[in-house]
């Protein structure tokens, strides 16, 4: 083991968590530890932590996320037993020592293979008519703000997106980063009551606001000390009947109070920017969000 690898092994282990059914609170508490770094994307991780039950329908998504962790990588399963932090750190040291890690799960083939047709190999005619790599270009549609004809980007996000609750799959259509259409394809996974803990709810929002330090402090039972975090949440964001807006729900969570139902939260997402939508979804408790998603899914 070279001195460089030894130095790397001493750094916090970069872990991308894949959270399944019933595992959200324990994973969130685990990452309050300074020895672990919660990676924001698989690309930034070396370890993949799979915790809780993953439904069969989401196996392929799990495999995709697994393969998106760059090699060498290691995947670990955690069912809530003790000593997970040590297991993760051991795995990280093993990788730093030069282990080859896990193999790919999906075939190393482009999902849409190169067509090799058209003037530029774009697989079709004209500038926008082609399907480069078998995938079409974005086509125009009316913008929700002023009716300009602009390109629309449709994608399914989740079930393991770091900015969305675990299990939630949204089919969103974006213009720029403004959401113009949004459908719930799969509701968030059921989580234990513990996931509605106001400290965890506030910590999720703080993390989305780019304040992981205060979020970790809150989870460890201390005060957030996040000056101005409340004002960073736009006023009126995700406003619901009888439950106020996201800013109010955040303030309530900091005071140790939980919000009520989240009916209609998905209707408030249209016209929001992507970052605001993630914040609005995180502002309600996981149980209320699951209930609201089950009603519209």
């Amino acid at each position: 083991m070279s001195w460089l690898a030894r130095l790397a092994a001493g750094a916090p282990a970069p872990v991308y968590p894949v959270i399944g059914e019933g595992a959200q609170p324990r994973v969130e508490r685990l990452f309050a530890s300074a020895a672990l770094e919660r990676a924001q994307s698989p690309r930034a991780a070396a370890l993949l932590l799979v915790s809780g039950n993953i439904p069969e329908a989401h196996r392929e998504a799990l495999d995709r996320v697994h393969d998106q962790v760059p090699r060498p990588r290691l995947g670990l399963h955690w069912e809530g037993d003790d000593g997970i932090e040590e297991r993760l750190l051991d795995a990280w040291r093993t990788l730093c020592a030069g282990a080859t890690g896990d193999a790919d799960r999906l075939p190393d083939e482009p999902p849409n293979p190169w067509e090799g047709e058209g003037d530029f190999g774009q697989g079709g005619e004209g500038m926008m008519g082609g399907v480069p790599y078998g995938r079409p270009m974005a086509m125009t549609g009316e913008d929700v703000r002023d009716g300009l004809e602009l390109d629309r980007y449709t994608a399914r996000v989740g079930p393991f997106a770091p900015m969305l609750p675990p299990g939630l799959v949204l089919e969103v259509t974006l213009q720029g980063d403004v959401i113009v259409a949004c459908d719930v394809l799969s509701p968030p996974y059921p989580q234990p009551e513990d996931a509605d803990d106001p400290a965890l709810c506030a910590a999720r929002m703080l993390r989305l606001l780019g304040l992981p330090g205060p979020a970790d402090r809150l989870i460890r039972g201390g005060a957030a000390h996040a000056i101005g975090a409340r004002r960073a949440i736009p006023r009126g964001l995700g406003r619901l009947e009888n439950a106020g807006d996201a800013r109010m729900r955040f303030a309530d969570a900091l005071r140790g109070r939980n919000g009520g139902a989240a009916d209609g939260i998905f209707d408030t997402l249209i016209g929001l920017e992507w970052s605001e939508a993630a914040l609005a979804l995180a502002s309600v408790t996981p149980s209320a969000l699951r209930q609201a998603a089950l009603e519209v899914a």
């Binding site: 690309r43 999902p111 270009m137 390109d151 980007y153 994608a155 996000v157 079930p159």
Partner: peptide
């Protein structure tokens, strides 16, 4: 450097997939 595999070259959507390429014209 490790060669980038096909799943790694795809955009990261938390396990989801896109319908179209991400190259799009938007008005600033």
């Amino acid at each position: 450097q490790n060669r980038t595999s096909a799943p790694q070259a795809a955009p990261f959507l938390g396990g989801g997939t896109p319908d179209t390429h991400a190259w799009q014209r938007y008005h600033f």
